[in-house]
Amino acid sequence: MTVGKIQFAESEGTYILKFVGDVRLTLCSTLDTFLDKMFAQPDFRSVIVDLTETEGIDSTSLGLLAKLSIQAKRRFGLIPTIVSTNEDINRVLLSMGFDQVFILVRDQLQESQQMSELPCQECSEQVAKEKVLDAHKVLMNMNEKNRNTFKDLVKSLECDS
């Protein structure tokens, strides 16, 4: 698998986040910081997450995507869009209830924007643990199936903190 990276583009307040390769915990600080900055922009209108080149995505990254959706709904009254043409990724998204918090599109995006890569941010082990815990709590609160799936992991992470 290709090492993961996150690219972005913005036009008239619409942000596109493109996950490429194997997107893992190592990108959680990068993504979390970008989301905070994106939502703080006065011209923010919408966000599209492009997973068409995503080979793999871990639960921490999925938790951050769930957090993105929750914040977009709470702060702006909008439901973000995820674009994914990968049936394996689509299965994961559906099994975790992402169709309840995102508009899921299975068609390829027409890329007209020049994408820039988000620089990978390093974080301490403690900060990483906190982000993993937070992301999994968000996933747990999405539905009962996720609660059952992640309750032991969350309990273990809380004991380690």
Score class of each variant (00 low, 15 high):
Cys120Glu: 15
Thr149Ile: 11
Val83Cys: 00
Ser61Asn: 09
Leu153Ile: 15
Ser84Gly: 12
Lys18Pro: 03
Gln114Asp: 11
Gln108Trp: 10
Asp160Glu: 15
Asn143Pro: 04
Phe102Ile: 00
Ser29Trp: 07
Thr149Asp: 15
Thr54Phe: 08
Glu55Gln: 10
Arg24Tyr: 08
Pro80Trp: 07
Asp43Gln: 02
Ser161Asn: 09
Thr81Asn: 02
Leu35Pro: 01
Leu78Asn: 02
Leu94Lys: 07
Ser11Leu: 02
Thr26Ser: 11
Asp43Gly: 04
Ile57Leu: 06
Ser116Tyr: 06
Asn146His: 14
Val20Met: 12
Asp88Gly: 11
Val49Lys: 00
Phe39Cys: 03
Phe8Ser: 06
Pro119Gln: 11
Ser116Thr: 13
Leu157Asp: 05
Thr30His: 04
Thr60Ile: 08
Leu78Val: 09
Ala72Val: 02
Tyr15Lys: 10
Lys73His: 12
Gln100Met: 04
Glu144Phe: 05
Val92Pro: 01
Lys73Glu: 05
Ser29Gln: 11
Lys5Val: 01
Arg147Gly: 06
Arg74Ile: 07
Glu122Trp: 10
Gly97Glu: 05
Ala135Gly: 08
Cys120Thr: 14
Asp160Thr: 07
Ala40Phe: 02
Gly56Gln: 13
Ala135Met: 09
Leu25Phe: 09
Ile48Cys: 00
Gln100Leu: 12
Glu10Ala: 15
Leu93Gly: 06
Cys28Thr: 09
Leu109Gly: 01
Lys145Cys: 08
Glu87Leu: 15
Asn90Lys: 10
Ile6Lys: 15
Phe39Asp: 06
Cys120Ile: 11
Val101Lys: 03
Thr14Gln: 04
Val127Asn: 06
Gln41Lys: 07
Thr2Cys: 04
Leu133Tyr: 08
Ile79Thr: 12
Ile82Glu: 01
Lys151Trp: 01
Asn86Ser: 15
Asn86Gly: 11
Thr60His: 05
Val138Asn: 04
Phe39Asn: 01
Ser29Thr: 06
Ala9Thr: 15
Thr14Phe: 08
